[in-house]
Computed example of a mutant assay.
Amino acid sequence: MEFYFLGTNAGVPTIQRNVTSIALRLLEERRSMWLFDCGEGTQHEILRSPLKLSRLEKIFITHLHGDHLFGLPGLLSSRAYQGGTAPLTVYGPPGLKQYIELSLGISQSRINYQLHIVEHTGGVLFDDGQFRVESALLDHRIDSFGYRIVEMDKPGKLNQELLERYGIKPGPIYGKLKRGESVEVEGGVILHPQDVLGSPKKGRIITILGDTRPCPNTVVLAQDATVVVHEATFLHELADTAYEYHHSTALQAAEAAKAANAGQLILTHFSSRYKDQEQLEPLLEEAKSIFPNSLLAEQHVLLPVPDIG
């Protein structure tokens, strides 16, 4: 599980940074990729990356401001030309379906794969037993949502040495034990999963927040998260400006991560007044003064999601 940032700027693109889009690569977990927001130019950034649109399974839109979704119609219409024929689901606030259908309809774009559009107002959006995705409303000029991605715990490793003593080789019995089923082996012995499985591997939690002022739901969504991705549009010296425009400062992002007992904080969605990486360093220093395990998102840099334990 890895983050790949395709855009880290707020509002408008600059030469240095594109507007918001975050890829979550789940190659080991489900051989797919999820996308969070799709600002203008996202498909161009994907072409410059190791990411493949053919693996794109889900898109989550935080809110309907242009810097978070103007790249969506182009990406959807181009996906099939890059081998993307599997079904794709797009989640987002009410109004998303009208935007997509109107854009694709007027441009007579042809989508030759199943496209599902799910509008929501928060709650549990998806749960397949491997991952659960929840959403909650934040505090922005329009409805803006954060997403909490919960990876379910995985069964512990099988004690192969013990299984070999019972004459059990890799095969269907291994699968049954991993699924929590008891099995009967030679001699009428009943093996229970807890007899041969190690401790479960704790699943990770990822929180990706849309544009927001500080609000209770940032902490609710980020509670005990392995990684929190939080906007940090301004330095705290511009806290009044951040409040006026319904955004957060780097310091406020760090306060939310600390209050939520998160493991790591990644800052993104930077104002274009901070021209380059050097000018972003003060935002990182500000966040680290409250929450030491903070990082700056950088475009075209892979950031692995840490394992737990």
Results as ranks from 00 to 15, higher is better:
M1Y: 07
M1V: 12
E2Y: 02
N9D: 13
A10N: 14
A10M: 11
I15K: 15
R17A: 12
T20C: 11
S21H: 08
E28F: 04
E29G: 02
W34H: 12
L35N: 08
L35Q: 08
L35H: 02
C38G: 05
E40V: 15
G41N: 08
T42R: 03
H44N: 13
E45G: 05
R48K: 15
R48P: 01
P50Y: 06
L53S: 09
L53T: 13
R55A: 12
R55G: 00
L56M: 10
K58D: 03
I59R: 09
F60N: 08
I61N: 04
I61K: 08
T62I: 04
L64I: 11
L64F: 10
L64D: 09
D67W: 13
H68M: 10
F70W: 11
S78H: 10
A86D: 14
G92E: 03
G92R: 11
Y99W: 08
E101V: 11
L102P: 00
L102Q: 14
S103L: 07
G105W: 04
S107C: 03
R110T: 15
I111G: 04
N112V: 13
N112E: 14
V118M: 13
E119F: 05
T121L: 10
L125E: 05
D127G: 09
G129V: 12
V133D: 01
A136T: 01
D139R: 11
D143V: 04
G146A: 09
Y147D: 00
R148H: 07
P155W: 00
N159C: 01
E164M: 06
R165W: 00
G167I: 02
K169I: 02
P170Y: 00
P170A: 01
G171R: 01
I173M: 14
Y174N: 05
G180Y: 05
G180D: 00
G180L: 07
E181R: 03
V185A: 00
E186Y: 07
G187S: 03
G187H: 06
V189C: 02
L191G: 01
P193I: 04
L197S: 02
K201L: 12
I206F: 10
I208D: 07
L209Y: 02
T212W: 04
P214F: 13
C215I: 10
T218K: 06
T218N: 11
T218C: 15
Q223L: 10
D224S: 14
T226V: 03
V228Q: 02
A232K: 05
T233C: 12
E237M: 05
D240Y: 02
T241A: 08
Y243M: 11
E244T: 13
A250I: 04
A253G: 15
A256Y: 00
A257P: 10
A259T: 03
L265S: 04
L267G: 07
L267M: 09
S272T: 14
K275D: 09
Q277D: 15
Q279D: 11
L280H: 07
A287M: 08
A287E: 08
S289M: 12
I290G: 01
P292L: 03
P292G: 07
P292D: 10
N293P: 03
S294E: 09
S294D: 09
A297W: 04
E298P: 01
Q299D: 15
Q299V: 03
I308S: 12
G309A: 06
